[in-house]
Amino acid sequence: MSQQAIPNKLSEQYIDLASERLGGETLSCSDDFFAEMENLLKAGRGIFIDDKYTERGKWMDGWESRRSYGRDNGRDHDWCIIRLGVPGVIKGFDVDTNFFRGNAPQTVSIEGCHSAQQPGADTQWFSLLADSPVEAHSQNLFEIDNVQCCTHVRLNIFPDGGVARFRVYGEAQVDWQQFLPGELIDLAYVKNGGRSLLVSDMFFSDKNNLIMPGRGKDMGDGWETKRRRDPGPDWNIVKLGHIGSINKVIVDTHHFKGNFPDTFTLEGTMNDSQACIDGSAKWQTIIPRNKLYAHREHVFIDEIADPKAHFTHIRLNIFPDGGVSRLRTFGYRKED
Score class of each variant (00 low, 15 high):
residue 2 S to R: 14
residue 2 S to H: 11
residue 4 Q to P: 00
residue 6 I to C: 14
residue 7 P to Q: 12
residue 8 N to R: 12
residue 14 Y to A: 07
residue 24 G to E: 13
residue 24 G to H: 08
residue 32 D to W: 00
residue 34 F to H: 03
residue 40 L to H: 05
residue 40 L to I: 06
residue 40 L to C: 06
residue 48 F to T: 11
residue 49 I to T: 12
residue 56 R to M: 12
residue 59 W to V: 00
residue 67 R to L: 11
residue 72 D to T: 08
residue 73 N to H: 15
residue 75 R to W: 05
residue 76 D to M: 11
residue 81 I to G: 04
residue 82 I to G: 02
residue 82 I to F: 00
residue 92 G to T: 15
residue 98 N to A: 14
residue 103 N to M: 03
residue 106 Q to G: 09
residue 112 G to P: 01
residue 117 Q to R: 15
residue 121 A to H: 12
residue 123 T to L: 05
residue 123 T to Q: 07
residue 124 Q to A: 14
residue 127 S to W: 00
residue 131 D to Y: 00
residue 134 V to P: 04
residue 135 E to S: 14
residue 136 A to T: 12
residue 138 S to R: 12
residue 141 L to F: 01
residue 143 E to W: 08
residue 143 E to I: 15
residue 143 E to D: 08
residue 147 V to F: 15
residue 148 Q to F: 00
residue 150 C to E: 06
residue 152 H to R: 14
residue 159 P to D: 02
residue 159 P to S: 05
residue 164 A to T: 07
residue 164 A to L: 10
residue 165 R to W: 09
residue 165 R to A: 03
residue 167 R to Y: 03
residue 168 V to G: 05
residue 171 E to Y: 13
residue 177 Q to L: 06
residue 180 L to K: 15
residue 184 L to P: 00
residue 195 R to Q: 10
residue 196 S to R: 11
residue 198 L to S: 09
residue 199 V to H: 10
residue 206 D to C: 06
residue 209 N to A: 11
residue 209 N to E: 11
residue 211 I to L: 13
residue 216 G to C: 06
residue 216 G to Q: 04
residue 217 K to E: 13
residue 221 D to E: 12
residue 223 W to R: 04
residue 224 E to N: 10
residue 231 P to Y: 15
residue 234 D to P: 07
residue 237 I to G: 01
residue 241 G to P: 04
residue 257 K to A: 11
residue 260 F to M: 02
residue 260 F to Q: 02
residue 260 F to T: 01
residue 262 D to W: 02
residue 279 G to D: 07
residue 298 H to D: 01
residue 298 H to K: 02
residue 303 E to Q: 15
residue 305 A to C: 11
residue 307 P to T: 03
residue 307 P to Y: 00
residue 308 K to E: 15
residue 311 F to L: 07
residue 317 N to I: 10
residue 317 N to C: 09
residue 324 V to E: 07
residue 326 R to P: 02
residue 331 G to S: 09
residue 334 K to H: 09
